[in-house]
């Protein structure tokens, strides 16, 4: 691939990567870290463009995931947040209109990896094979883990629903 071809390919697919990775990061970290990790993710996508598979979004999420993990390990987030939050407004999100405390409690009750696989499924809208690409596991393993995570979330919702004394609340939220 000539350098001009590389540029063309990158320019063609990068806007979709930017959009998806921005969302991925806005869901998982503070605006300052999101800004840094987005730049880093893009840089890696550019450098490793030749390794990018046809279905590049899960691959890009995987890159962002590792960059984010590094960033959070390496940096004292709170300090950076205090210094930089004023300067970055690309990642500011409002809380969803209808807060679902019950769901939030149920998600918080799950193990981290279960909650993350559910986020990838619902928020990033990924199928098990794509989740597998993000997490670096087999499609089969992703499928099983997703199934179990859904079941655990249902269990947690039943618990919190029952604890709050309104078992029917989940029904009421159906569209």
């Amino acid at each position: 691939m000539t350098s001009e071809d590389r540029r063309e390919r990158f320019e063609a697919l990068a806007p979709a990567v930017i959009d998806a990775v921005r969302r991925y990061l806005a869901r998982r970290t503070d605006p300052a870290t999101a800004d840094d990790v987005l730049s880093e993710t893009l840089l890696i996508c550019w450098r490793r463009l030749d390794e990018m598979p046809g279905e590049y979004l899960p691959w890009a999420y995987g890159v962002a995931r590792r960059c984010l993990a590094n960033a959070e390990r390496a940096q004292r987030r709170q300090m950076r947040l205090a210094v930089r939050i004023a300067a970055v407004d690309d990642f500011v999100v409002r809380p969803p209109e209808a807060a679902d405390d019950e769901l939030a409690t149920a998600m918080a009750g799950l193990r981290g990896e279960d909650a993350e696989i559910l986020r990838l499924w619902a928020w990033e809208d990924l199928a098990p094979a794509q989740i597998a690409a993000v997490l670096g596991i087999t499609a089969n393993a992703a499928s099983i883990r997703l199934h179990r995570a859904k079941q655990r979330l249902r269990d947690e919702l039943r618990k919190t629903g029952a604890g709050a004394g309104h078992e029917e609340s989940t029904e009421g939220r159906r569209p």
């Binding site: 930017i18 806005a26 999100v93 809380p95 969803p96 209808a98 807060a99 679902d100 769901l103 928020w123």
Partner: peptide, 21 residues
């Protein structure tokens, strides 16, 4: 159902209000 669960999760998506760059 799975769809219900997914929809309920989606309604809490923090990036839903994220404006395009």
């Amino acid at each position: 159902t799975d769809d219900d669960l997914r929809n309920r999760l989606r309604r809490t998506d923090p990036a839903a209000s994220l404006a395009p760059l």
